[in-house]
Design a protein around this nucleic acid. Structure first.
Lengths: 129, 129, 129, 129
DNA sequence: GTGGTCTAGACCACG
DNA sequence: GTGGTCTAGACCACT
């Protein structure tokens, strides 16, 4: 289930991308599972179909999902979907942003580790080729 | 020292904001210290002075720096500008984004903790009123 | 409705900020309400769109409004963004300025109270988390 | 005694103007009293003499003080130093700013009145022609 | 020389 | 059409 939060800083299409990525990462969506159709999801989320199409296009380009004409959109078999370099860059950016937030908000490093551990706990990470 | 990376996803003015924030957080810039002048930094970074002015304006609104016309821009005395709930909210958002990145990129939680610890090490947290 | 007074000591963008703040404070603009578009308000007030954008950016940083690219700018849900100490500081500064004005202009305290009461009457204070 | 607060939003010369106005309003400086010399005050406050000169010039233009060549600067005899219209404008501006601050900070009107009364109490207002 | 404001016009991202 | 960013250049206020 994907939810659109209007107050979110991320654009709508990005929220969809992140939502699908999370569902796949947590195992909620397994390889071969069928995603909601572009029009169906758009109607369900009450947003423009073009926005859903854009999100699906991004996920397809990334290799996480595949579309089969006339059938639907499916989660791909797990493999190295992004290059190592690309993954590094993404992780670095996310880490850097967290560190900046911590620094400017004056939180204690120990507290951060505890909270991160709590957040990370429910994640069932999938092995990637 | 602030560096502008053109390939960075963040806009230029945001990179300046983050750079100053980090410098203050690490103690590289102490309260009362004078920042580079708007025009001076713009020339040094080879960008438009208005871009620097925008970054400095954001930092001023945030309460991290203070500007005096005709004199310059200075680091403010540390104080707690945001409410506890707001700080909580900001930290949660940053953590959530990191978790999303980790999950969708398939990194191992242990590695994240190590990298975060390394990033956090140089932080000298400022006492806040 | 926001009005720009060219003879005003405040810069134009500040008049917009104050105008929106008052509209929200009086309940004229409720949470979730859509503000005039940047370009639309600029045309209406016969000023440069960047000036409106600057005012909206300030209000966004303040947490009073939220903007969604391609959609518009909206009044945020009320929340306590500033710490109690910071609110105290702001109020003190405003009070002090009024007292200075009163003292140096030779007004009678009773008159001030009456006028202040009249100004304060239309205020519908927002509940804050 | 005038104090310059570097963190103050007001420019230095304005702080001097306000300081003298307050001293006169509270009766600390009586008509005919001699002010500190331009150079003396500048040295005492560790600021540029031009800044003091600018403040004194503004106060002279306003009619609050008078300079006698080769003798010094003195507080003028009380009279209507500003036009009614001018006084109205100043008071309105100060009131409006206070109201905006109150509204956006979510303070209760009753509390404001109490605090204002407390601030106003020590003022010994001088009758003005 | 310092910062602050405003204008004008360009390009991008989003829906 | 929406907001966001950046550039370029002008003018003002302060020291």
């Amino acid at each position: 289930m994907i939810q659109i939060v209007t107050g979110d800083a991320r654009p709508v299409f990005q929220q969809i991308v992140d939502g699908v990525r999370m569902s796949v990462a947590t195992g909620e969506l397994l390889p071969g599972a069928k995603l909601a159709s572009t029009r169906g999801l758009a109607m369900q989320l009450m947003i423009n179909p073009n926005t859903v199409a854009k999100a699906y296009a991004a996920l397809t380009a990334e290799g996480l999902i595949e579309s089969r004409k006339g059938v639907g959109v499916f989660v791909s078999e797990p493999r190295q979907r992004l290059s190592d370099e690309e993954r590094e860059r993404c992780l670095d950016a996310a880490l850097q942003q967290l560190v900046t937030a911590i620094a400017s908000l004056g939180f204690a490093p120990e507290e951060i580790h505890q909270r991160l551990a709590r957040e990370l706990a429910p994640l069932t990470l999938r092995k990637v080729s």
